[in-house]
Computed example of a mutant assay.
Amino acid sequence: MQPVVLACAAQAVYVVAFVLFRSATTRMPPLTGRRPLRVTLEVLRSPRWTFGLLLLGAGFALGDTALLHLPVAASLPAFGIALALLLGIAAGRLGEHPTVREWGALGLTVAGMAAVSFSMAQGLTSAPSRPGDAEGWQLGLVAAPSLLLPGWLLCTRDRTLPGRHARPQTGVAYGLGAGVLLGTAEAAGLGFALRLTHHTGPGIVEAVLLLVAGALGLGLASVGLQHCRMIVLVTVTTVTAKIHLLVAATWLYAEPWPTAPVALATRLAGVLLPAAAVLLFPHHDPRPPRTPRTPHAPRHGRGGTSAEHPAFVSEHRASVRS
């Protein structure tokens, strides 16, 4: 029971940290993912953002401690508690209210968490026997997509059109990029914890990957939190990070999967439903309605009434003189 409590506490700490990041970035000048050095300088100047970073580090430590005694899949349902906390804070503090489509995406996420819980009821709730010595090339294969995908998303897939065609982003692209990076950081942190537990080495590669991927992910998330809605961005970030962590842990640390047909089907549903939820989230907010123009009075000599026409005026003057 204690590892489950730690996993739930870690998710709650993540949400509070993201709330602090959001509060800090709203007080900063405009940030962009194409200027990482400027983003780094701005966020490090903010005491509130720094406090959020410390909280997030504590959440990572709690999560890794829980994962030493639980399969990764057993920690995923804890996001349900964090999701309720996120919705409450976003609605009460920020005035964000999900649309019908976003409620559907959130429902798919909850259904995925429920499917994972059902698959865990088949007996895979004990501490897995994981190796703590992942090879460097395996870590490289996990890290490569996390470094390439965010750049591709920002540069080609989620640009904001300038001018009257501009539509505010909901945070899907930022959430995908930050989620992959933070999922890689969580996988590296788990590897670092396993090495310390099994005494299989200092874990220098895992530590470097944890710091680099974590810093890039937090920077990208901070940029997104300044421009996008927190409900969408944090949900997409967390779902992407957890799915990436589950896949990476299966590859790196032999994460156990159920073999019974029903349990395996529900485990796959627990992965596919949140992925479908990410696709269901709208990428842009609805364009605000355009204010109708007030009709102007017709100008003299251009589309006016016949009484304003020069010929009519001259004729009227002649009749008066006569």
Rank of each mutant, 00 (worst) to 15 (best):
P30N: 10
L139G: 13
A185K: 01
S222E: 04
T197S: 15
L268S: 14
P47A: 05
S146W: 02
T25Y: 01
P295Q: 11
P282K: 01
S306G: 10
H199L: 15
V313A: 13
T184E: 06
C8P: 03
R48G: 07
M230N: 05
T26E: 14
S306Y: 04
A127S: 14
L252D: 01
A144K: 11
A7P: 10
D133H: 14
R290S: 12
V16F: 09
P128Y: 01
P71N: 14
T25K: 02
V236C: 04
E206M: 08
R299M: 12
T250Q: 06
G63E: 08
A115P: 06
T156D: 11
A277S: 14
W137D: 08
A78M: 14
A277F: 00
L55H: 03
L218C: 12
L181F: 04
L181Y: 03
Q122F: 11
R45M: 09
A84Q: 09
R27V: 04
T294L: 15
G136C: 03
R93Y: 09
V271T: 06
T32S: 15
R287W: 02
L211Y: 03
S23D: 12
A265F: 04
L181W: 01
V110M: 12
P77F: 02
A82F: 01
T109H: 00
L76T: 05
P77M: 06
A143G: 13
G183K: 10
G151M: 10
F281S: 00
I89Q: 05
L6I: 08
L252M: 08
L246E: 07
A143V: 14
H165Y: 12
L149K: 06
R293W: 05
E135C: 10
G163N: 08
S75I: 04
V278D: 00
I204S: 15
T109L: 02
E102P: 07
R229Q: 12
S126W: 09
G163F: 03
R159C: 10
T237K: 02
M28P: 03
R317H: 13
G179Q: 00
G80S: 14
L149V: 15
C155A: 15
V116H: 00
L210T: 09
G140N: 08
P256W: 01
G171A: 10
Y253R: 11
A134M: 12
R195Q: 13
